[in-house]
Design a protein around this nucleic acid. Sequence first.
RNA 1: GGCCCCGUAGCUCAGCUGGAUAGAGCAGCGGACUUCUAAUCCGCAGGUCGCAGGUUCGAAUCCUGCCGGGGUCACCA
Length: 592
Amino acid sequence: MDPFQLLKSRLTGILDDLAEAGTLPQGLDYGRVNVEPPREAEHGDVATNAAMVLAKPAEMKPRDLAEAIAGKFTGFDDVTEAEVAGPGFINLRLAPAFWQARIGDILAAGTAYGDSQLGAGRKVNVEYVSANPTGPLHVGHGRGAVVGDALAALLAKVGFAVTREYYVNDAGAQVEALARSLHFRYWEALGLQVGEMPEDMYPGEYLIPVAEKLAEKDRSNWPATPEKKRVLGESFLLEQFREIAVDAMMEMIRDDLAALGIVFDRFSSERALVEAGGVDKVLADLEDRDLVYTGTLDPPKGKESDDWEPRPQLLFRASDFGDDVDRPLKKSDGSWTYFATDMAYHFDKHTRGYRDMIDVWGADHGGYVKRMHAAVKALTAGGGNLDVKLCQMVNLMDGGEPVKMSKRAGTFVTLREVIDEVGKDVVRFIMLTRKNDAGLDFDLKKVLEQSRDNPVFYVQYSHARCHSVLRHAAEMFPDEDFSPAALTGANLGLLADEAELDLIKSMAEWPRVVEGAAEAHEPHRIAYYLLDVSGLFHALWTKGTREDASLRFLNEQDLGLTRARLALVRGLALVIASGLEVMGVTPVEEMR
RNA sequence: GGCCCCGUAGCUCAGCUGGAUAGAGCAGCGGACUUCUAAUCCGCAGGUCGCAGGUUCGAAUCCUGCCGGGGUCACCA
C-alpha cells in the first residue's frame, strides 16, 4: 500500500466531511490536490497543498481552510501532529508505528512491492531499437534499447498490458545496398571477385561470415558466373540475397539484444506491411478525407543543397495537424517514402488496439517527431496517443578521454563489444542514469570502479550488504527462520532510531516513485531513487558500526531486536531488487 | 533561416508534471578502520537556477523574447 495514497484517501474523506458540514461547497474538484513528502524534512513527514488549491473555489482564506482540515487530521491515532505552515501547507507528522507498518507491506509483497493498478490493464505499445537491419548495433542503439525496455517494465509494473515491439525497416534502399553487399561478399567467398568494394555498399566485416556460410552451404544454388547471373536476373538475385542478409542481420541484432536481456514480443516488418497493402489502405483513407495532394515543396531554407530541384510530389497535409510543412509520401521513382510506411505502421499499431503508443528514438530523428504526431492525430482522429522519447547521444569515454570512433579506421565500437567488456548489468544501469533528453557520458573505466562515484557499484553494494547481514544472521542464529514470511511477525516497533525511520520512510516512497516514473515515462527516476535509498542504508550501517554499536543489525543477546532489524534489511533488499528488476539489472548478493 | 533538445555549485548531474530556506556525487578542506565488507560514512565550504519580461497565493519548473551550446532540415531510414 502506498502510504501517500492512503493519506490522500483520508484527506478526501475529510474534504467530503467538510463539504457535508457546509464548510466547503459541494462538488469541488480535488484534481490538483497533492499529498507528498515535503522537500524539507523539517516540515514533517507528509505535506498537502489542499488548502491552497481549494481556497479560491471555496472562497476561503488558505490558512483558515488549512486549519479546518488540519483539525480533522488530528483525529487519527497515527497522526501525531497536523500543522499549518507557510502560505497554507498542512504538514503532518505520523507516528513511528505508521511507518513501521510499511515494512510489513513490503515483506508481504516481495519484489511486487510498488506494483499497482494504475494502468488498469490498458494496452500500451512500446516501440524501441528498430535499428535498420544493416549491421551491428552501436552504443547509441543500446541506450534506446535499455530505456525502452525499462520503460516497458515500468509500465507493466503499474498494470498496463505492455507490448515490446521492434519495427524492422526491411523495405528501403538501404537493405538493397545490404543485399548487394552480401552478394559481393558471396562472390568474394567463392573466389570469383577481386578488387575494392564499391562505395555504396556496406564494408563491415560482419557480412563475410554470412557470405562464407552461404558459399559453403548453397554453392550450387546461386549463380557463380556472370552468365548465370544474367539468366536469373538482377532483381531475383537481389531479392534472394536481401532476404538472407536481413535474416542474418536480425539474428545478429537479436543476439546483441539478448546479451542485454532484451526480448521483444513482436517484430513488425515494413516490407510485410507494404505487401499486405497497409500503405495503400492508409492512402485511400487519406484521399477520402482530402488529406493528400500533389504539390511542390519549397527548398529547405538556410542550408545550401546542390542537388535540390523543384519536384511535384504526393504530399500529406501534415501542416493541418501541427507540423511545419506538408510531407512527401512518394519518392520520385514512385515507391513509398519512409514516412508513408511509418504512417501505415502507426495506423496498424492503433488498429491492433493500442491507444497509447510510445516510440523510443535516437536524437537524430528529432526532426521527425512533429510529423509523426501529425500522422497519428490524422489517422486516429485524435484517439491515438503517441509519446516519442528521444534519447540523446552517448559519448563513449575511456578514463576521461573520448573514444574516437570511425567506421573507416576500424575503431568503431559496437554495443556488443561494450557489453562484453563491462557486462550487461553495468550497461543497463548506466544507460538509465540520465534522463533521456540529456546527453550521457559512458566511461568504460569509471563504470567498473568500486567506489561511491560509480552508481552501479553503489547500489549493488547496498543490496549485497543486506544479504551479507542476512548470511551472518543465519550463522549467528542457525535455528531461526529469517525468511520474509517469518520476519512479518517481528516486533517492528523496535525500529525507533531516527536513521532507521528515515530509511523506512524512503522505502515507503517506492510505490509513489514507481507511479510517478511510469506516468512521466521516465525510467531514470528509478536509478536515482535507488541511489538515494542506498545512501540512507550505508549511512545507517556506518552509524551502527562506528558511532553507536546498539544500532548494529545483529545482536546475539537480543533475538527480538535482531528480528526487527532483519525485517528492515530484508525489506530493503526487496525494494532494491524490485527497482533493479524494473531496470533489468541483476541484484547481486555478494561483492567480490 | 525554421524546428527540436539542453543551459542549475569549479566539474558531472538530480530536482518528484507549480510549492516552503534549490539538492547529490566528484574535485577541495577536516574527521571516523581490533568491521554485520572503510568497496563505506560524518562534517565544512561552495548558487544572480543563461538574461529580461509575463502568468499567480507561489516559478529552476508554465508562456514570450533574446543570448550561448548541440541536433536536424525534399527525392535516406
